[in-house]
């Protein structure tokens, strides 16, 4: 019998600190597998955000830098311009990217900096205990909108992929979901495509991954997958929004 599935060497042996059933772990695995399959071992630098993935530098088996909250695209830009031969990826959450770091991601995309950004959208601030994020759905409860997000008071959720797709810099923008096996496989393809674009020098590539937060959504891990499949996907349609051939 042959091994058909095993943990990739591009993940370290450090156990993930994520909550049980949190799909951050799946996202980590997909990125790491992509790095392995593309032969990027020893050529890649990753940037960890501030948020639940703040410890990502312990998990990705490559050189890593820890960025200040929201600033990963800027840090990635500095790295990429300094060592253009490196493959550089930033791994960010929705608070990190779409709130405090919105200027950084928009300008990195507009510049078309040849980096890859993995954007975990779980519609909540996880590490800090469940506050509303820019991607929190209308009506969704969070610790800073306990009665449910109200557009008049809390503004509207932001569809980041579509927004960035209006810019000319990006070469690839896709939104995928981690809610079930078929979608996870599609997400893997998208992540591979994003890194290939970087390898081929096509410029800024971006994959948004709809993800769960069982703890702060107050749902079981399996029920949280349904929430992604139904409510989240309704607000954040899946697909490729930009693709430069």
């Amino acid at each position: 019998m042959a091994v058909v599935f095993k943990k990739t060497e591009m993940l370290t042996d450090t156990p993930l600190h994520y909550c049980p059933g949190c799909t951050h772990g799946i996202a980590h695995r997909l990125v790491a597998e992509a790095l392995e399959e593309l032969g990027l071992k020893g050529k890649v630098v990753g940037i960890a955000p501030v948020g639940c993935a703040v410890f990502a530098y312990k998990y990705f088996n490559c050189d890593m830098q820890e960025a200040a909250h929201g600033r990963a695209p800027a840090v990635a830009t500095g790295i990429k311009l300094t060592n253009p031969d490196n493959i550089v990826f930033a791994y960010q959450g929705d608070g990190d990217l779409a709130s405090i770091g919105m200027a950084e991601i928009v300008h990195a995309a507009a510049r078309g900096v040849n980096i890859t950004v993995i954007f975990i959208n779980n519609a909540i601030y996880g590490m800090t205990g469940g506050q509303m994020a820019p991607t929190t759905l209308l009506g969704q409860k969070a610790t800073t909108c306990p009665a449910g997000r109200d557009a008049k008071v809390n503004g509207n959720p932001i569809r980041v992929s579509e927004m960035l797709a209006t810019l000319d810099g990006p070469s690839f923008i896709a939104r995928c979901s981690l809610a079930d096996v078929p979608n996870i496989k599609k997400a893997k393809k998208a992540i591979l495509q994003a890194f290939r674009n970087q390898i081929d020098g096509k410029g800024f590539s971006f994959v948004e991954l709809l993800s769960t937060c069982p703890t702060n959504w107050h749902m079981s891990p399996v029920k949280a997958l349904d929430y992604v499949k139904n409510e989240m996907t309704a607000q954040y349609p899946l697909g490729v929004f930009k693709e430069v051939k």
Partner: peptide
Amino acid sequence: IGCAFCATMCPDCVITVER
């Protein structure tokens, strides 16, 4: 049946599959 759905869905790479 070694489909590896379980391993694909696992956030912590707990499962190794052989076929």
